[in-house]
Write a protein that binds this DNA or RNA. Structure first.
Length: 188
DNA sequence: CTTAGGATCGCCT
DNA sequence: GGCGATCCTAAGC
């Protein structure tokens, strides 16, 4: 049971973990908020970075579950994933949006905006707001600087196709907190 | 509100 | 050498 963090078993399939993460609170050095949007990248998934096997970049996805996988996107942004599964083939959950709750001032400085809806409404944005970078790749989510807190009650979910990919575009593995104003894009 | 284009560079074929 | 699990801005309707 050492893969359980915030009441979630990270050795479960990514598309299950992605749903359970909605409503939990993620902090990095005390800055963060409620997870309101995730995407699953399971094994055998052509859209996953881990699909073609381990490489130098995706190595963290083949490491222990419950750890961070951080990669650079478009040469500019950082994106944060939670590693899932224990069966030898990497999988993960992309954290796409947070509802800002803690460290608002720090996030506003890093993002250069005071609009709370623009602080963490996208995978690149939330990494900038929380100060996540390659330095966090491979770190355990159960220890500082990370903190993941269990949600109080089950979260009402909405689902849809994943964003920004060209393979397996029909798989409905994007999950959101129903009614949240802090998602990266509306759910249809 | 929706769409289009540019920035920018590490990773993989 | 091509192409992104993105973001921002500007322009069009």
């Amino acid at each position: 049971m050492r893969n359980v963090i915030a009441g979630i078993d990270f050795s479960a399939p990514a598309h299950e973990v992605a749903q359970l993460l909605i409503g939990t609170v993620l902090l990095v050095d005390g800055v963060g908020g409620r997870i309101v949007e995730t995407e699953a990248y399971d094994r055998e998934d052509p859209a996953s970075h881990a699909f073609s096997g381990p490489t130098e970049r995706n190595g963290a996805m083949f490491g222990p579950p419950g750890h961070a996988y951080v990669y650079r996107s478009y040469g500019i942004h950082w994106c944060l994933n939670f590693v899932c599964r224990e069966d030898g083939h990497g999988a993960g959950v992309l954290i796409r949006a947070l509802e800002p709750l803690a460290g608002l001032e720090r996030m506003q400085q890093r993002r250069d905006t005071s609009d709370p809806r623009l602080l963490c409404s996208g995978p690149g944005k939330l990494c900038q707001a929380l100060g996540v970078s390659h330095a966090h790749n491979g770190l355990a989510l159960a220890a500082p600087p990370f903190s993941l807190s269990a949600r109080v009650a089950p979260a009402p979910l909405v689902t849809g196709p994943r964003i920004g990919i060209s393979k397996a575009i029909e798989v409905p593995w994007r999950f959101g907190l129903a009614g949240s104003r802090f998602v990266s894009r509306p759910f249809r």
